[in-house]
């Protein structure tokens, strides 16, 4: 079953992991250069007082990663109505649906998990723990939104009613806008901790994304095949 899920996105997964690794390496080398040129003190101070830090689009890449994996996961189920097969495996429908959603999500989670550990090793060697808290909070927010984007994809790829699929897509775009307003890259923050309340709003967005996903599966099962 894992293989069945993994093979849907195997190639693109590996490609994106390579890309994320490259972004991570670029961030690490940039930081190393900054420390070599200006010293760790200046690096810390310029973070504290000028918000001089960027993830070099690694955070954007994380979102793209989750989104693309989700597109592959759910499109493969939609092609030729393969979802009909997946729903017929001898388990409850909830389990069959849960497996389709969670399997890809687990692969995304794995990359995020490894990434945050590496980032903590790389950045934690230079930045004070108070700064690391800000960075980790921002990254955690980024990952959670990545998961949400993944679930959003279900809401517009599986959803067979075109009108609703479009609405779900628009709400996803609105959520992306909201996400970047609340949790932009560090240098673009209006203030540190601007994302303090962000998880509450992401919670509301999660409610929508999950509802949309389950409604989509339900609609599909009720017969809006094609």
């Amino acid at each position: 079953m894992f293989k069945k899920e993994f093979y849907k996105f195997k190639d693109v997964y590996l490609l994106l992991v390579v890309l994320i690794t490259s972004f991570l390496a670029y961030l690490a080398f940039s930081l190393k250069n900054m420390v070599q040129n200006f010293g760790a003190l200046d690096t810390n101070l310029s973070f504290l007082f000028k918000k001089k830090f960027t993830f070099f689009h690694l955070d954007d890449m994380n979102l793209v990663f989750a989104f693309v994996i989700a597109v592959f996961v759910f499109f493969h189920e939609r092609i030729n109505g393969r979802l009909r097969l997946s729903l017929h495996f001898p388990h409850s429908s909830a389990r069959n649906i849960g497996f389709i959603i969670m399997c890809g999500l687990l692969f995304v989670f794995f990359v995020y998990f490894v990434e945050i550990i590496l980032l903590n090793i790389i950045l934690g060697a230079v930045y004070a723990k108070e700064i690391m808290y800000v960075l980790n909070y921002s990254l955690a927010f980024n990952y959670v939104f990545g998961f949400l984007l993944y679930i959003f994809c279900c809401g517009f790829i599986i959803e067979p009613v075109k009108k609703r699929a479009i609405v779900n897509f628009i709400v996803m775009l609105g959520s992306i806008y909201l996400y970047y307003e609340i949790n932009p890259d560090i240098y673009a923050f209006d203030s540190f901790y601007a994302n303090d309340f962000g998880f509450y709003y992401m919670g509301i967005v999660a409610l929508y994304a999950l509802s949309a996903a389950f409604i989509a599966f339900d609609n599909y099962k009720r017969g809006y095949i094609k």
């Binding site: 504290l48 108070e130 700064i131 540190f192």
Partner: peptide, 10 residues
């Protein structure tokens, strides 16, 4: 005014 600083100062 609408800035919250990191609890680390110099």
């Amino acid at each position: 005014y609408n800035q919250k600083s990191i609890p680390l100062f110099t």
